[in-house]
Design a protein around this nucleic acid. Sequence first.
DNA 1: CAATAAATTTACCGAACGGTATAAAAAGAT
DNA 2: ATCTTTTTATACCGTTCGGTAAATTTATTG
Lengths: 187, 187
Amino acid sequence: MNDARTALLDTALERFVERGYESTGIQEIVDRAGVSKPTLYHHFGCKEGLLLALLAESLEPFQSRLESAANHQDDLPLALNRVTRAFFDFAGQSPQFYRLVICLASAPSGSASARAFAPYAARWHAVLKRLFAAASNPRVHSRSAQLAVTFLGVINTWISLALNDAIALDQDLAFQAVHQYMHGIYA
Amino acid sequence: MNDARTALLDTALERFVERGYESTGIQEIVDRAGVSKPTLYHHFGCKEGLLLALLAESLEPFQSRLESAANHQDDLPLALNRVTRAFFDFAGQSPQFYRLVICLASAPSGSASARAFAPYAARWHAVLKRLFAAASNPRVHSRSAQLAVTFLGVINTWISLALNDAIALDQDLAFQAVHQYMHGIYA
DNA sequence: CAATAAATTTACCGAACGGTATAAAAAGAT
DNA sequence: ATCTTTTTATACCGTTCGGTAAATTTATTG
């Protein structure tokens, strides 16, 4: 039975989003999940293992979709649209989890939170960078690293806004966001 | 002598940026600062008091500059330029401190980090919102709250990029950022 | 110089931390 | 039905946590 495992992952997500990974005690998680401490250590090895498993469970599937959205190199705006919709859909389907992602992405560099998320951040950045680097325009090509960072920043800003103010992360918003961003590049 | 006080604030900033407020122990701070534990409690009352003092010391002066930059309601792009330059100058002069700001701004809502920074975040948002709300264009006026959030998001994205990749937060970048953002509004 | 107030130290507190040795219960396989 | 493996629980480990009482040093003031 992986009943306990699922309960632990659910509870961990809830507590990590509310109070943060570092401030949440193992005891609090197991109590709320209705299991005992050694059960957690049996399934996840250590506290960090719980966080890593929580991230892998949701981020691995998303990574596949993200890379397939970015792979077909037809033209840049279309690819950026697919990427943006992938992010918006993901955040819309798992809002609580994406709240955690936003916390981890800005966590202090030496913290366990940042270390756990770092590999995924690097992969996201690589996907976007490759996309911009493949553009014909030399202004875009030569700035691919910067553009990757600022594009992800814009996306996360919109998602943050949606998570707090309940605006819709629909295709229209994705189109507008990409359109505005593309214009900014050439300005 | 406020020698100990200054040493504690400096050390706290360094450790909070590196490992985060929640993961940094009082013991570690006083050891590195070369003082003893009750000295810290004499000056700051409690651990959270240390964080609050650290924030107040740098953010109160900045708040004055930010509000004066936003006050003269000549026209929106000019005001946004002054605001952007205020942020860029601040981040350029205190890069380590602004790293802390970025961490706190995205910290879990129920954490001590987020609670400490929340009042400043609210004031920043209010300043920007008032600026957009004063615009004549109804599309800008009616979306002032959203625009305030997204504008701060763009600014922080640029600053994050500068802190990691050592690009220059100069007046040109401020002008470009505002210009691109303004175009996006009317698109 | 004496008296007072502020700053700092030594030594300690109870509680919560992450983690584990041992063993009982549950599930699957033969 | 029994044996084996996986899963869960009781009770506990040493360490570190934030915080403090009491006393000592340092600086200020009359």
